[in-house]
Design a protein around this nucleic acid. Structure first.
Lengths: 244, 244
DNA sequence: ATTTGATTTTTTGCATGCAAAATTGGCGGA
DNA sequence: TCCGCCAATTTTGCATGCAAAAAATCAAAT
């Protein structure tokens, strides 16, 4: 899913987790589980770099910062460990997991494989309606490209990748893909790579749509895989250049 | 990863989680985190069917049964939810997730895609040593097949699939694969399918090894994908037959 | 000055407490 | 008989308590 984009915008200066006052809870349709909110909050803090790589996750401090008790924090940390964002130190808490160049490129490689598979399946299973919608998204993206609107291009590009995976009509595939994309968000470098490959990537998407129109899954998959692997290579070069 | 086998053997009649007496803990090299033990215990209980599909996970009862407090049980349940084994009911606890035919076949489809990718990469990245080891495993498996030793055949077959993924030298790929395999363990149907396809599967493995010997990743991947998809089809037929 | 070891402090991991939400059961009405 | 409403009970979710393990601090000895 190259063409990664960082969907920040919300810089969240205040980490405290808002929750309806005890009495106001009645009005709120339903209260979101705290531990879930904490997971999201901590994930953002890690992805946005508020918590630095290797930094110990201090449950008491975090609980105080987020204005919750240690319990939901503990649950959240364990959940984030399954996502690979934090590393559990048995008996000594947890710390933000390192993200080596190898980890990132491995991630991008797997995402490429998944998206290839998604293309193959989607080409066969996509309804005419879905194909039409995808076409419209693609056209819109082409417009952003011509207009030099990088931000909206990135956003839509991500949506297209997700839409293709959804069109494969395989829930496990979609879940797996989503989880990997989430992790890949940590590599901001990917965004740079996309930028460098902007024109090229656009051309590849063009070919991809053509393959979908022909319902040629094999071809679509191949294009997607190459598309992803090229971005991966650029990312790899950037990473090697930054710290060799 | 078709040719699924259920690695029971340990029927665990007593669910209580053993732990060194408070004082004996000194002797034990290091105490395993309780929540981890609970995760494993509950996962087995679900996979082995001790907890039936749809059954509510009652944290107090489970805690009592496992001889721990609610806290590690709660953590474990949330962890199992990320594995897809249980379904969280916001505000109402959790229950054993349903495993529909679609879910199983989706799972097998994704595993097929992952293993194809693994074959492609492994063919390129595998060391001569690894290839030799894989060959020996394959020969041994052929022996079990000829001897009609289904149990050991299954076990070794699983190990071969895992070894191939490992040879792809991509940690994310391996982790993702392992997680999916774990979930697939719930479909005992797969074991039946393997049995039905025993001879055929063996022949496919033969071709696979030949492709690896030629370092033909494309071919190896294709063989693996077809291998997995055929098992998937048999599973699908079994499932449709059992409850149509 | 540096290192080692004992002591204090912090932090973790599990257990328990408590209020709010959800479920259950009973009762009255249709 | 069946449905719906209200009270009693259970269960969840979060907070807090507590003992053991880990880390930090300090002291003495090299």
């Amino acid at each position: 899913m190259p063409d990664e984009v960082t969907t920040d915008e919300s810089l969240a200066p205040n980490p405290v987790i808002e929750r309806p006052a005890p009495e106001a809870a009645k009005r709120a349709a339903r209260q979101r589980p705290l531990h879930e909110a904490v997971v999201d909050r901590l994930r953002d803090m890690i992805i946005e770099g508020e918590l630095r790589v290797g930094e110990r996750l201090h449950e008491f401090n975090l609980a105080e910062t987020l204005n919750v008790s240690r319990t939901p924090v503990r649950e959240a940390v364990k959940l984030l460990a399954t996502e690979g964002l934090v590393e559990l130190l048995p008996g000594r808490g947890a710390r933000v997991a390192a993200l080596s160049a190898k980890t990132i490129t491995d991630l991008l490689e797997v995402i490429g494989g998944i998206e290839r598979h998604a293309c193959e399946l989607a080409a066969e299973r996509m309804t005419a309606r879905e194909l039409a919608k995808l076409s419209r998204m693609h056209e819109r993206m082409a417009g952003y490209h011509q207009a030099g609107n990088l931000h909206d291009y990135f956003k839509l590009n991500n949506e297209i990748h997700v839409a293709i995976v959804a069109a494969a009509k395989n829930a496990t595939l979609a879940t797996t893909h989503a989880a990997l994309i989430l992790k890949a968000r940590r590599g901001r470098h990917a965004a740079l790579a996309s930028q460098a490959r902007w024109a090229e990537a656009m051309a590849e998407h063009e070919l991809l749509m053509k393959a979908f129109a022909e319902r040629d899954g094999r071809k679509a998959g191949e294009i997607m895989l190459q598309h992803d692997l090229r971005t991966r290579e650029v990312v790899q070069r950037i990473l090697e250049a930054s710290k060799p």
